[in-house]
């Protein structure tokens, strides 16, 4: 178990970017991937792409997020990747339909984002299970189903 506490830098930081690039060439860059659904955790156990068992924590004031550098040594670095949530894209036909769609999404406690006139539902499970909840609105043509592609 490799104990890692705190974030030492960001992978997109200009100076760090070069060092990480050099380490990657030398085969000394490891990545750990956290599922999007785990975002918010401050303690998590993850195995890197090179098989290192990492016990990761950050202080409550810090966030584990995409590109966080968790270890930076002359001959080794570990960078966090965060999986991207699939999002189901929906557009309501008119204001009345939008009110209904918003009510349902809230009532179902779905995690949502907004993109212009689209509602994005972040998927924690199979799309079919989400579709089933809105079947009435979809079948009535009140909401346009933009898929999760």
């Amino acid at each position: 178990m490799l104990r890692l506490h705190g974030i030492v830098g960001r992978a997109d930081d200009a100076e760090l970017h070069q060092r990480l690039h050099a380490l990657e060439h030398a085969g000394a860059l490891e990545r750990v991937t956290m599922e999007e659904a785990d975002l918010g955790r401050r303690r998590i156990r993850l195995t890197s792409d090179k098989g290192t068992d990492c016990a990761i924590s950050v202080d409550r004031a810090e966030d584990l997020s995409e590109g966080a550098v968790l270890l930076l040594e002359p001959g080794r670095a570990i960078v966090l990747r965060v999986g991207v949530a699939k999002a189901w894209r929906l557009r309501a036909r008119d204001a009345g339909a939008a009110l209904q769609l918003g009510w349902h999404a809230g009532n179902l406690h779905w995690r949502v984002r907004f993109d212009g006139d689209m509602l994005l539902v972040l998927l924690d499970g199979p799309l079919a299970e989400y579709r089933a909840r809105l079947a009435a609105l979809l079948d009535a043509g009140l909401v346009e189903d933009g898929g999760d592609g």
Partner: peptide
């Protein structure tokens, strides 16, 4: 059966 914890609150 629908209750879940926010990740902002719990690590596990």
């Amino acid at each position: 059966l629908a209750s879940t914890f926010s990740r902002d609150l719990t690590d596990f």
